[in-house]
Design a protein around this nucleic acid. Structure first.
Length: 423
DNA sequence: TCTGGGGTCCTAGGACCC
DNA sequence: TCTGGGGTCCTAGGACCC
């Protein structure tokens, strides 16, 4: 049976979230910054028109932003995650098979759900419902493969005449859009691949779809082969409504101020380790491998450059903050070198397993494990909401001390004291 | 002065086994 | 003196995604 997928993608998602609570910003240029106020990661239509490229460092466009009185926000992930889950809940009423692909987009399996003729209208209904229930504008792309649904969504965003919905079920429409879309817009074509494709004279999505499968396989990889088949309408990537448990948990940050001494760097790494352990417990997972990485700035010309990482295993599968912090500290000692100005560090947990059913090893002490689990649970409950009321020795008490967040909006939907007030 | 963070998948090459 | 070949597992690195 011919399959049918919809890709629903929120428009300028972070900007739209901020505008929900600041409606006066509707037609104003708005940008959202990454963690640490480093780069521009979301732009309103008006900001895009000012030629502010995605992921530009803030300092490069600061003057431009000022001149055009662009509204600036630090990222407020607590808010975005909450709005995202409301959007996803709404989408789940439109298909039994929904794959949440990222914070702002989801694939819906429409196969056998609606007739080909009704698909465009269904897309419009999705748009209107999300707008009415959550207040977030979305675009919908519908097609027989996920790669084409991505393309359709890009079309819906690019061409206002589509009214936010593009259905590529008919091959004529599909081919027409392929011919006018640059190959760089195709899902899976990144910077490196783009360069190689251009050398081969491949510039549009249509050119790519015409590349022989054999050549694609030989010169690129199975990934490219799949992309081409999908562009031709052959579904190779299925909906993944029950994603496998995560394989790694990462906590890493650039610092607001560079760190040259061991003690503050250790405190920071301990903090990252504690956060990673929290995430692990939230996922109901355990880890056996831990990696600690540190680096100096990759951009600074005058500072000497150094980057290193060290991995090691934990005594057994664990999500106990104390064990993870202890191991992180010992690993940091092996990569620490005096005389550098550190700009970034990270802790990664891998070799994960679910915490139940748990397979203990020979030396496991069940009563000790139960006690530790209870202790961590109590800690998480006290810290619920991210306020960081209690912490372990070695952690730095003021969370986020190292992060610049000069333009943060309130946690409108997740903290009582910050609820918006209608007067 | 100031350049994000958190993930996934694929491939190649080495170690090791029989 | 002869020095195969196929399989698995692990790791590092690359490329990509949002």
């Amino acid at each position: 049976m011919t399959r049918s997928y919809a890709l629903v993608d929120c428009n300028n998602f972070y900007v739209s979230c901020e505008r929900l609570f600041r409606p006066e910003l509707k037609r104003r240029p708005v940008v959202i910054l990454s963690n640490n106020d480093g780069c521009v990661v979301s732009r309103s239509q008006e900001a895009k028109k000012l030629n502010i490229p995605m992921a530009t460092p803030l300092f490069k466009v600061e003057q431009l932003l000022k001149r055009h009185r662009v509204e600036i926000f630090s990222s407020n992930y607590t808010l975005y995650a909450d709005i995202s889950s409301r959007v996803m809940q709404t989408l789940e009423t439109f298909s039994p098979q929904v794959e949440i692909y990222s914070i702002d987009e989801a694939f819906l399996d429409l196969t056998g759900l609606i007739t080909a003729e009704a698909r465009y209208d269904y897309g419009q209904e999705i748009r209107q419902t999300v707008q009415r229930h959550v207040g977030i504008p979305v675009c919908v792309g519908i097609a027989p493969t996920k790669t084409l649904a991505k393309l359709a969504n890009h079309g819906a965003k690019t061409y206002p005449a589509t009214n936010g919905v593009v259905d590529l079920s008919r091959p004529e429409r599909r081919d027409r859009l392929l011919k006018i879309t640059p190959v760089s817009e195709i899902w899976g074509v990144g910077k490196r691949t783009l360069l190689r494709l251009q050398h081969m004279g491949i510039h549009t999505a249509w050119d790519l779809s015409a590349l022989s499968i054999k050549t694609a396989r030989r010169q690129f990889s199975v990934v490219m082969e799949r992309t081409i088949r999908e562009l031709r309408g052959e579904a190779c990537i299925d909906i993944d409504a029950q994603p496998a448990p995560q394989q790694q948990v990462i906590c890493s940050r650039s610092f607001g101020e560079k760190i040259s001494a061991y003690a503050p760097l250790r405190e920071t790494v301990c903090e990252f380790a504690a956060r990673a352990a929290e995430k692990l417990r939230h996922n109901r997972q355990l880890a056996r491998m831990i990696t600690v990485s540190v680096r100096t700035s990759a951009y600074s010309a005058e500072d000497p450059c150094y980057a290193n990482s060290a991995s090691g295993s934990l005594p057994s599968y664990s999500n106990d903050s104390r064990q993870i912090i202890a191991r992180a500290t010992s690993l940091l000692q092996t990569v620490w070198k005096d005389g550098y100005r550190y700009a970034k560090a990270g802790v990664m947990l891998s070799d994960l397993s679910l915490d139940s059913p748990f397979q203990p090893d020979l030396f496991d002490d069940p009563s000790c494990r139960a006690r530790n689990t209870a202790l961590m649970k109590a800690m998480d409950q006290i810290n619920h909401g991210g306020s960081g009321s209690i912490w372990l020795g070695g952690q730095r008490p003021q969370r986020d001390w190292f992060m610049n967040r000069a333009h943060l909006s309130p946690a409108y939907t997740t903290r009582w004291e910050q609820l918006p007030i209608v007067s």
